[in-house]
Design a binder for these strands. Structure first.
Lengths: 250, 250
DNA sequence: CGGGAAGTTGAAGAGCGTCAAAAGTAGTGG
DNA sequence: CCACTACTTTTGACGCTCTTCAACTTCCCG
């Protein structure tokens, strides 16, 4: 299967076709191996698919907002989602970008601690929290997988703290591009050129910078020949090593 | 039991006395309710105590370093630990301060993703990774507790990203003091004045600031009457509401 | 006491933010 | 098909917050 591009708002992807055949629609899910369903068997997949709803979300539409009762959990199957927190005066911090296979909606508390909205047209599986928790009790493998995901997210979050607290604008952009590239590979897409479906403003809110600084830094990297800005929000990395050196502050 | 101060390097706490009596030493653990052992019964506590080692760590000594094989997990019983990541040129980002009841050592990978060293004299329980994982298989409650802890850490990390990416120095310090105060309460200590056992340099590395800016900002808050700097690394909060307003960017 | 680390304060400068304007791009409807 | 609008991106000029570098003070612990 040719790697589709689920990341740009220009080339909108078709929803992943779901076979309503023998076992369960989840059997045909192209991102299953990436997410919490990876460890499940046919019978278990059927139980999962019994409690989920497929949703299509338009660019800009919210999946949920910070402070709302946390009633659902989600799995992204196609598209791109941004999650963020706000300060009283509207300052925004993106805490993550989510792509096919990514999982979201965890909450300690009974309410979401952050907001989630679609960047491009996006498809998700939605699980009622209570029902998923009930299933988890019977599927210890899935619980372990969820824990592994949370652990991984924690490591990613710590890396992001290093970036936000200690890296320069140039280092932040370099790290960001390498992150996108690495995640594209894990989804079976091309590592280069990398798709950058979000706006400069979104990138700024993710890296703790302004739109203008993001733009200037891209220009600077382009003029140094380190990246080439392609149409359709794609960026070609000219020498991954150079970017890695910049990203690590070498 | 009088709330001891486990947080300053000046007044070093005694290790929590452990009763080597009937059931297990863990029965007498004063931080048990705060950590992964909270959900365990007597029999299970005994199994836990069979695989753990008590360690005393001197100020500045490492528990483990970034990149080392992740062989152990830890529970802080007394003292204070800092965890951090480094860039190639020595820039440092604290990703957390850990106090009694806190748990550390999770790793995706086979190696630690961050370093951990003691701030004050500290006591920890150390669990061999493999043995703890084996126990987890039999104690689903503890696994759930671990997942809850990881989820909570994730929420804290997102809050910290908001701080690092979008808050001013003044807002960062205000948030930091409130965070320390809130955590002291959860450990059964006084919320005010709050103990600040770490150096200005450590605080700076946690908040993405320099030592000098931390110092200047404390001075500024003191001159505004918002805090009073007491001896022994204690800070009195004069009006929590004012600090909260500052912290939220109001 | 005395020496070394930690903390404070000052002056100068850099990096990034703010404000403003122009250029590029996408979507809409006549 | 093209004009019209709204949004995004880029670029410039300027300013401010925080950093850097340095000196001095305070606080410990031997």
């Amino acid at each position: 299967m040719a790697p589709l591009d689920f990341m740009t708002s220009r080339s909108v992807p078709e929803p992943i076709p779901r076979i309503t055949a023998p076992s369960s629609p989840c059997s045909a899910c192209s991102v299953r191996q990436l997410t919490i369903c990876a460890a499940l068997e046919e019978r278990e997949l059927a139980e999962m698919s019994a409690i989920l709803t497929h949703l299509e979300v338009e660019p800009g539409d919210p999946l949920f907002l910070e402070g709302e009762p946390a009633q659902h959990l989600f799995n992204v199957t196609a598209g791109a989602i941004k999650i963020f927190k706000l300060l009283a005066d509207g300052r925004r911090q993106m805490t993550g970008f989510l792509f096919p296979g990514d999982f979201l909606g965890l909450a300690n508390d009974e309410t979401y601690a952050y907001s989630a909205t679609a960047i491009t047209r996006t498809w998700v599986c939605r699980f009622p929290r209570g029902k998923l928790e009930a299933l988890l009790k019977h599927f210890p493998k899935m619980e372990q997988r969820l824990f592994a995901i949370a652990s991984h997210e924690l490591a990613v979050a710590q890396e992001q703290m290093l970036l936000l607290g200690r890296k320069t604008a140039r280092e932040k952009i370099a790290s960001f591009l390498l992150m996108l590239s690495g995640r594209a590979v894990r989804r079976g897409q091309l590592d280069n050129p990398v798709s950058v479906p979000m706006t400069r403003a979104d990138i700024g809110d993710y890296l703790g910078l302004t739109t203008e600084t993001v733009s200037r830094t891209f220009t600077q990297l382009r003029k140094s020949g380190i990246v080439t800005l392609l149409p359709d929000g794609k960026v070609q990395l000219n020498g991954r090593e150079r970017l890695e050196e910049i990203a690590e502050g070498a």
